[in-house]
């Protein structure tokens, strides 16, 4: 009962007694610094030098956080790949959000996707990592790049100016601070189950998906089909609005040129008399 109360009340006095991996004060200070850096880094009416300073502040905050986490979790140190992949993922994510050229944002998103796939491999989710690369890097990102090529060929004002950067950064880093404070507390109860082997992760995932969740798999297929149909219907070039026809011109208008298709209409240049 006591343990349950401790889990439900993470801010209880028993858990705030300096036992956290990264202390709450350090998280708050780092989040404030990172919020300041984000405000400076986001695209706006600022010079490139100021944006670089913001990026530097953000980088320093991330490095300090990584050092604190590494020091706090020295009992169970992470391998080098965790640090490499998470640094790449987070740096790529920040560049996606802060870059002013949409195509570069999409390419940094590719970097984030590949780094996340690396993290998933470290978590023994090999199939999910492969699916992430195939679906995100292979399908979703290509769609995004297509639309960017279609609609964002010139750099517009909407790429170089942010909307409410101060307010958004403050709110989001307040959220991140609370999340990190709760995450980095020492857990009240620790689980002591034996580790499973990694060799059969993919067949086990297949059994899980098609055994326990087979209806949901079918529903996901239906969802994809509906989404494709909806996208096709939305993307179809609709018929232009028709002008009302005058009674006198309700006839086939054409000329002697056999390459001209006869058209119905009022003000056609192909009308013989015009």
């Amino acid at each position: 009962m006591n343990a349950a109360v401790k889990i439900l009340l993470p801010f209880g006095p028993a858990q705030m007694s300096g036992a956290a991996i990264v202390s709450a004060a350090a998280v708050v200070v780092l989040c404030a610094a990172a919020a300041l850096g984000t405000v400076l880094l986001l695209p706006g009416a600022r010079e490139a030098a100021i944006r670089k300073i913001g990026g530097g502040v953000l980088l320093a905050a991330g490095a300090v956080l990584a050092a604190l986490v590494a020091r706090g979790s020295a009992a169970d140190p992470a391998g080098p790949f965790f640090w490499i992949f998470s640094a790449l993922a987070i740096a790529g994510a920040v560049r996606v959000v802060s870059h002013t050229v949409p195509v570069y944002s999409a390419l940094y998103f590719l970097l984030t996707t590949l780094a996340t796939a690396g993290l998933l491999v470290l978590l023994w989710a090999e199939f999910l990592a492969a699916a992430l690369v195939l679906i995100y890097a292979g399908a979703i990102l290509v769609t995004y790049v297509f639309v960017i090529m279609l609609a964002a060929r010139v750099q517009a004002e909407c790429d170089t100016h942010s909307r409410e950067p101060v307010l958004a950064s403050a709110a989001c880093f307040a959220l991140l601070g609370m999340l990190l404070v709760v995450i980095f507390q020492r857990p009240a109860v620790s689980r002591g189950e034996p580790a499973q082997t990694a060799a059969d992760a993919t067949p086990a995932l297949a059994l899980e998906l098609f055994g326990n969740h087979v209806v949901a798999v079918e529903v996901a297929g239906v969802l994809l089909a509906v989404a494709v149909a909806g996208a096709v219907i939305m993307g179809r070039r609709g018929a232009p609005p028709l002008a009302p026809l005058a009674p006198a011109t309700r006839q086939i208008i054409g000329d002697d040129n056999p390459h001209n298709i006869p058209v119905y209409g009022a003000d056609s240049a192909r009308r013989p008399g015009a």
């Binding site: 991996i21 956080l65 986490v69 009992a75 965790f82 990190l180």
Partner: peptide, 28 residues
């Protein structure tokens, strides 16, 4: 263990929050 879980949760939280910032501030 718990320490490894906390590291990965932190990475997930940071990615999520960076996404929210982009969602709120970008106009494209």
């Amino acid at each position: 263990g718990d320490l490894a879980l906390q590291r990965y949760l932190a990475v997930g939280a940071i990615l999520f929050v960076v996404g929210i910032i982009g969602f709120l501030t970008r106009r494209n």
